[in-house]
């Protein structure tokens, strides 16, 4: 479904992504793990069309998207939940959700979806008119996820959704990832919390300083002694 090849991404002269390749099949949950500054967010932002790659190709459902503007990528069915539960702080919860359905295709069914979202996230339905900036960290993360669902994506990319959340809320987030998986979404999840992420993953990639250093199924990760000590804390 998503196919990334030979990807190089630069910030000015600094290379943040170095020859990365990645593949996701429909319905899979794929995770990318790596230390701080590895380039995980950069990878997601590049796929989302927010950064232009210097080299390489990204194709989605057989269509090249690496030169597309971000809004076009969204229209094509990819949606990004940015790092840190980034919402529009001065918009109400309702408006944040509404803005998620900004693209033409999603607008038509926005009302319907909104209802489903509120069923999925009852916390949000009590806070419709509240300013998003005044939500708690966990609620904000929920809102960010809900907002990206509003665009009715086929691939949803989550950038460290558990970051800075209390353990209980982290569990909720991962449960939610499982729910999405069951609903048939294709998920690309970036996590530092490798232990938990590997439990929900079909396939995993490890990147360090912009380079792909390991890939495989969860079991392969568990077996690798380097990864075990460096990332799984065992």
């Amino acid at each position: 479904m998503l196919n990334v090849q030979d990807l190089d991404v630069f910030y000015g002269e600094f290379q943040a992504i170095d020859n990365v390749a990645l593949k996701i099949e429909k319905g899979q949950t794929v995770i990318v793990v790596g230390p701080n500054g590895a380039g995980k967010s950069t990878l997601l932002r590049t796929i989302a069309g927010l950064l232009p790659p210097r080299r390489g190709t990204i194709s989605f459902e057989g269509q090249r998207i690496d030169r597309m503007e971000a809004y076009h990528v969204v229209e094509n069915g990819i949606s990004l939940v940015p790092e840190g539960g980034r919402v529009f702080p001065h918009l109400s919860v309702l408006d944040n959700l509404k803005v998620g359905s900004y693209n033409k295709a999603a607008r038509a069914k926005a009302q319907q979806w909104m209802k489903r979202i509120f069923e999925l996230f009852p916390v949000l339905s009590n806070r419709k008119t509240q300013r998003a900036g005044s939500l708690s960290g966990g609620e904000r993360q929920m809102l960010a996820i809900a907002r990206s669902l509003m665009s009715q994506p086929r691939l949803i990319m989550l950038d460290e959704p558990s970051l800075g959340l209390a353990p209980l809320v982290v569990d909720m987030v991962f449960e939610f990832v499982l729910t999405m998986k069951q609903e048939g979404y294709t998920v690309l999840l970036v996590e530092q919390n490798a232990n938990k992420a590997l439990k929900v993953a079909d396939y995993a990639y490890l990147i360090e300083s912009g380079k792909l250093v390991f890939e495989g199924r969860s079991e392969d990760f568990d077996k690798n002694p380097y990864i075990k000590t460096a990332y799984l804390g065992i």
Partner: peptide, 10 residues
């Protein structure tokens, strides 16, 4: 409010 995120939501 947030140009980059606005692009990100389409």
């Amino acid at each position: 409010q947030d140009l980059e995120m606005a692009k990100g939501v389409g």
